[in-house]
Nucleic acid binder design. Structure first.
Length: 370
DNA sequence: TTGTGTTTTATTGCCTCC
DNA sequence: GGAGGCAATAAAACACAA
């Protein structure tokens, strides 16, 4: 038998069961006292600490029948020992099933479950240390009236159960983590989808305007919100135009109040209050029906198309770079100037000038004085 | 009572360590 | 090479529904 090479090869073990050394107390008290013994090996009392599990049971639990059976075997064993060795019997072969009250494995033996007290005791021992040194194994076996091999097997199986539980715990934790990440991911996907829908919506609003003639009313294309934005910006522009006219009027008058002919084109600098107003002006003007210059349309459309076409084929991927591109393109959406298209107008394009490229004839700010 | 699934005890074979 | 641990597995014991 292969197992014999291992666990039955330990130190020989005396049969320690003697009725007069059993501790007639409640199981818990017994266990506590035994636990102290186990925790402090120096206080181990050998056969004197043997447990009387039968006294502690007080039930007809089916498991306890094994103990009764076990103890019956013990007593039988004890009789044999008395007969053979005059109460000083030492079983030289722990492995010999006939030498111990509870056999394992072969022969006529059947599996007998440990009593609840035995299991409880082993559990508490396991909590302290889940590995079993030979001395401790023998000690526990003595305490519980089991074979050292049984104690070893119990620890072995207990370690396996413990490992399984740990794995289940880890799996649960990992699964929870995974579920959370998955939920986050799906949320981001949804956000991405919504943003794409917005982009498409804007695209559908803007592109047809390039193709449309002037007969098409903007109000038919734009949402009420867009129309409000437009009106608001138109008002601003009108106000600026009035201001500009006043400035020009003042600058071209001489001391007598008479108008002086100008020999140079007048450059008017319009300050952008902030990027937002610029952006709204840009968008505003692109929506303007005045913005019908062919070149402008070309440019406008090219910008729109370019960033739309850059959209990756794979859905669900909308990177930060693309978001940046979108922002940039929104800023550069309006009709950019083609200076050569209108020789009469001098555009200065820098960040402080009105260089958004509106068609010259539409510009309030750029003119050639007569 | 019986069939079935689960738990516990025990075995086997392989591996590592000393 | 022996001792002991571990994974896989067998098999008995147990729980429980039908």
């Amino acid at each position: 038998m292969a197992a014999s090479r291992k666990l039955y090869g330990g130190s020989s073990m005396s049969l320690l069961l003697q009725n007069d050394t059993r501790i007639p107390s409640s199981s818990h008290q017994v266990l506590d006292s035994l636990w102290l013994h186990t925790s402090d090996p120096s206080s181990f009392q050998g056969s004197k600490s043997m447990v009387d599990f039968e006294n502690g049971r007080g039930s007809n639990n089916i498991r306890d029948r094994s103990l009764i059976f076990q103890q019956g075997l013990m007593e039988k064993e004890e009789e044999n020992n008395n007969n053979n060795n005059n109460n000083n019997n030492v079983c030289d072969d722990d492995y010999d099933p006939s030498c111990f009250h509870q056999t394992t494995g072969n022969g006529n033996s059947k599996k007998r479950r440990l009593t609840s007290e035995q299991v409880q005791f082993l559990e508490r021992s396991f909590e302290v240390e889940n590995k079993l040194e030979p001395e401790r194994k023998v000690q526990l076996a003595k305490e519980l009236g089991l074979q050292p091999r049984q104690v070893a097997i119990w620890f072995q199986n207990r370690r396996a159960r413990f490992k399984t539980k740990q794995l289940e715990k880890e799996y649960g934790a990992l699964k929870a983590s995974f579920d959370k990440l998955k939920a986050d991911y799906e949320s981001l996907l949804q956000q991405n989808h919504n943003l794409k829908q917005q982009v498409n919506s804007l695209k559908n609003k803007l592109i047809p305007r390039d193709k449309d003639d002037e007969n098409c009313s903007l109000d038919e294309k734009l949402s009420p919100h867009d129309v409000d934005m437009m009106n608001s910006n138109d008002e601003k522009k009108d106000q600026e135009a009035i201001t500009t006219e006043l400035m020009i009027s003042n600058s071209t008058s001489n001391e007598n109040g008479s108008k002086m002919p100008l020999t140079h084109p007048i450059m008017l600098t319009c300050k952008q209050e902030d990027a937002n107003s610029a952006k709204s002006d840009i968008l505003d003007d692109s929506d303007s029906p005045h913005c019908n210059d062919q070149n402008h349309h070309h440019h406008h459309h090219r910008h729109l198309s370019s960033f739309m076409e850059e959209e990756p084929a794979e859905s669900g991927d909308f990177s930060q770079d693309e978001d940046d591109n979108l922002s940039k393109n929104l800023l550069t959406l309006p009709c950019l100037p083609k200076v050569e298209d209108n020789d009469a107008c001098y555009h200065e394009q820098n960040e402080n000038t009105c260089g958004f490229g509106f068609p010259v004839e539409d510009q309030t700010f750029c003119f050639w004085p007569y």
